[in-house]
Design a protein around this nucleic acid. Structure first.
Lengths: 260, 260
DNA sequence: CGGAAACTTGAGCAGAGTCAATAATTGTGG
DNA sequence: CCACAATTATTGACTCTGCTCAAGTTTCCG
């Protein structure tokens, strides 16, 4: 068997003594050894092909909280995979306000907004100290021409971005404040779970303002909804630390759109 | 010069006597002769390459109003370019409601929601009699591996879909009913103008219900906003026929988000 | 021509926004 | 390390935009 399905090599590998080399804080770890590759690169590639991908990826110094990964209008050169930390993507409205268009967690890929116009339509900002892998897009395109699996993977990534944007559109268009907040909490919970972290107890990396901006709500409404969820024992909220106490009930709230 | 920039061959070509062959209602017209190719395929391709693309495209019988182009959950095989008519894309919410995620006009491409999961997450429904070109995706992928320009074009198309979804997110998240309706009217106006149709006088192909669904408003609110626009002489509204009487004022309404 | 679907308009209501005051947390510089 | 400023979050009172419900009208299509 000359192929290595990297999707099946999951993070249990850090039970080995060599945890240093595989730690996601270590900027030098290669794609093949990265514990996040099941999320970021869930395709079968020949080991040689992984090495070729590895070669084009640039790993820079970590971003500090508030630092920009790229700015609106900047020439588009790369997409980025998050290794640690959280990044928010924002676009600027005609009136000059921010619109948060997404939160990106470790293993997720952002920056694809820039492809069409050859410059970024969004800005990306670190919400906390964050390490990213920079993937130069022109070299990725070249490599994609040689590796059909990689081309398909990038089509797929962009398609996922489209479907997740459309889910947000539905959320904004049809759901109440309670439903929106519950949905966001569940989304973060699920994504944490995929990374083998707790699905019920986690720290929100973003401010109430960012949550409200993302969900089309005011900061006050977000705060009130969280207080209400706490009063009804769905959650324990301790500033940014969230504990989901009643997952089923929270899911019910999230899905309870005014059904006919 | 062995390359033909098809983007520069615009619809003025129908001044020739041979308008039959180039008419967008004729299902047999080739990509090279299609008057919409400036919108749907705005890239430089070798004439031979256009022919190769042409060969893989299937042109079926027109869809009648209300007919499905594809259903949610159907296996993903193709993307579609619209030749004539209008298609709406909808997704189904958890509660079983429709969410309109987009309106597609002639020259525009839809169906890319299905790539990630290999089946469509949306359904597509004709709002009026419509002709489409079906582009089998697997063959498009193969061809993209040979034609870097085509690969880039499809990355670009998907990126455009992402940025336009994000604009809708902003609209839903930040803008009032008036601003949302004005924005949609202006979007249709602009897209008509690109197709060399009137930017000020056109027929809305979708119902008030579809508009409301798309914009996150009720049918009653859409109706009231249009009445209000008419009273203030921004528009003349005659059921689905819209005439923009004061384009500048309408643009002001559309951009007037509560700026700080 | 008749029934259904689509649209318009009005009255009343409620969910989320605004404004405002206070509290808690974080960051900064002496 | 503490004190002060700045930012962030909570909570309350009031307002307003857009929703609900309802009735009536127009348009579409068989």
């Amino acid at each position: 068997m000359s192929r290595k399905n990297i999707a099946s090599s999951n993070s249990t590998s850090d039970s080995s003594g060599n945890s240093q080399a595989k730690c996601h804080h270590n900027p030098l770890v290669s794609c093949g050894d990265c514990r996040l590759n099941a999320i970021c690169l869930p395709i079968s590639l020949h080991v040689d092909d992984i090495d070729r991908l590895d070669e084009i990826i640039q790993r820079g110094r970590p971003l500090q909280k508030g630092e920009y990964l790229y700015h609106t209008g900047a020439p588009f050169r790369s997409v980025f995979a998050i290794r640690s930390g959280t990044i928010k993507a924002i676009s600027i409205t005609n009136g000059g306000q921010e619109q948060v268009t997404g939160f990106y967690l470790p293993g997720e890929i952002l920056g694809m907004d820039g492809i069409a116009q050859n410059h970024h339509t969004n800005s990306a900002i670190a919400l906390e100290t964050a390490a990213v892998c920079e993937i130069p897009f022109s070299r990725l395109e070249e490599l994609s021409l040689k590796l059909p699996g990689l081309q398909r993977h990038f089509f797929s990534l962009m398609s996922k971005e489209i479907t997740s944007d459309q889910q947000l559109i539905t959320l904004l268009s049809k759901n109440s404040a309670d439903e929106r907040v519950a949905s966001l909490l569940l989304s973060i919970s699920t994504r944490n779970h995929h990374r083998h972290l707790s699905a019920t107890c986690f720290r929100l990396p973003m401010s109430r303002a960012d949550i409200g901006n993302y969900l089309g709500l005011t900061i006050e409404t977000v705060s009130r909804v969280l207080s209400r969820f706490q009063k009804s024992n769905l959650l324990a909220v301790d500033k940014k630390e969230i504990t989901i106490l009643d997952m089923d009930a929270l899911k019910k709230v999230a899905q309870a759109e005014s059904r006919c």
